[in-house]
């Protein structure tokens, strides 16, 4: 492999307080950038339902009120976007994937992967391993207030230890599947797993 050229005169502006919290190639931002492939959908909670599917059949669906009545979890975490920004110390509230499974009467996940389906047609696939044991939730609040539509409200998937495209906005349906299948971004050159600490940005990384 060719030697990496040193960029003459280039110096880091990274703060020491960020050491160890920024995955490779990431920089810290203090605002909350938005990345979506299309317009923000107008979703009314009165019409909202979240469905859990297995093998084409419905395991359980929740209306907004039913979903809001599930046990609430708060997660303080850093988030990492594949476009290179990292936001430290974010606070989310919602329903953990573990509690969602319990509410659906599933003692353990029936298959090893899920596809998340969203309003507007977005999809992303996530290994169940990355969702259970408190690692992920369906988030409905950010910093204590209802999640803004542009940030995925009323409800988005939150899988903070993977690149943020896995934390699908406007979540409506979670479908179990036996094997990993590419979702929207994974079919467009992005990595199937997306671990920021291993810099799995693009296919083949």
């Amino acid at each position: 492999m060719a030697e990496v050229p040193v960029s003459r005169g280039f110096k880091s502006k990274r703060q020491t307080s960020e050491q160890g919290r920024l995955p490779p190639g990431q920089y810290r931002t203090t605002d909350f950038p938005i990345l979506s492939a299309g317009p923000t959908p107008d979703i009314r909670v009165a019409d909202w339902k979240l469905a859990l599917q297995l093998g084409g059949s419905l395991v359980r669906a929740w209306t907004w009120d039913e979903f809001e009545a599930l046990p609430q979890t708060t997660l303080n975490t850093d988030i990492h976007c594949v476009t290179k920004w990292t936001k430290l110390d974010t606070t989310w509230q919602g329903v953990s994937f573990d509690d969602l499974l319990k509410s659906a009467g599933l003692e353990k996940p029936p298959q090893a992967f899920v596809m998340a389906h969203c309003d507007g047609g977005y999809t992303t696939s996530v290994p169940v391993e990355d969702l259970i044991a408190g690692k992920a939730m369906i988030a409905t609040r950010f910093d204590g207030v209802p999640l803004a539509p542009a940030h995925g409200g009323p409800a988005r998937l939150l899988v903070p230890h993977l690149y943020f495209w896995k934390s699908a906005k406007w979540l409506r349906r979670i479908r179990f599947m036996p094997e990993a299948e590419p979702g929207f971004r994974e079919a467009r050159g992005y990595h199937i797993h997306g671990d920021p600490w291993r810099e799995q940005r693009y296919d083949g990384d």
Binding site: T29, D31, P33, G38, P39, D42, K84, W85, A150
Partner: peptide
């Protein structure tokens, strides 16, 4: 991008025909 895309949806353009790329000046 938020503003323009929502105006286009209001004007009855098909949301699936609207592709967006957003960036902030951050960082």
């Amino acid at each position: 991008v938020e503003n323009v895309s929502s105006l286009l949806v209001d004007l009855d353009f098909n949301p699936l025909s609207i592709k967006t790329e957003r960036f902030g000046p951050s960082g």
